[in-house]
Amino acid sequence: MDRPNPLFRNLSSKLASAPMVLIVLCVFVGGTLWTILFSFTNIKILPIFTPSEWVNGFVGFANYERLFNTDRWMNCPAITKIGTEAWKFKCAGAMPNMVTFALLAITISMTLGFLLAVMMDQKIRLEGVFRTIYLYPFALSFIVTGHVWAWIMSPEYGLQAAVRKLGWESFSFGWIADRDMVMYAIVIAGIWQGTGFVMALMLAGLRGIDEDIWKAARVDGIPAWRTYLQIVLPMMKPVLVTTFVIVASGAVRVYDLVVAMTDGGPGIASDVPTRYVYTNFSANLGQSLSASTVMLVTMAFILIPWIRLEFGKKEQGH
């Protein structure tokens, strides 16, 4: 007998996943391609659809040129005169802000999250209560987190005003209105929100470690901290990478937190790429799309190593 057509193997599961595949192709892949294609045109507010209009509106890399010449997107004056002024090197603008936010939020929330998970792992009493407490911020929306931290760090209403009323007149914590500190204010809020979630993921990873490994380490007389650092941590690599991807992609697309906390202020000191994309959306779509494409490329830098790690290995194994 002939082998059944491979196209009809597992027909029911293929049928069931067809809508999802279709959505992925049309919405995600299609939308992404559309974004990239039309970032090379001069469309303003109405999208164009026909190829001839695409050709007529084609402007090459003009949108990207303008993007990287816009102070609001990226303003790195020291890049050209590095050397004598290397120590004054300071980038401003949405893109550097996002990098600052991503680097700090990822490192701090992952370190803190892991440490918290290790502490949880010590078979402490009331673990459920602590886990709930640490996970609670994650249940709030970024808008709520943003507004609360904006009040805490506002010079007029927040902690600064409260401490000054108690008598410490020189106390200063009005980071929301401080151009140099405002990004760190947003990082604090982001970490407060995200660390509990990282902890939950890490704890799941820790619980997945075989009890026998611990017994073996104890028999060999290895101290607990070394077991964590040199045996358990390498074994948790899949969890670590997944956590990293989730936290990093969250950092790249941070929007609501910034809008709720500062709305990009003071001035444009805490602007982020997503905000730039949004404010240009109804005035200059081409500019908006080129900014999205740059974000997409940034995202790809983060995601591709993960994809290779997750899926590449299996192919090698077979």
Binding site: G265, I268, A269, S282, A283, N284
Partner: peptide
């Protein structure tokens, strides 16, 4: 003048008045 340029002028002055 078009909205796009107005946005850019607004961005410029927002930054100028804050920095």
């Amino acid at each position: 003048i078009d909205r796009d340029s107005i946005n850019q002028i607004n961005d410029l002055f927002t930054e100028f008045m804050a920095n």
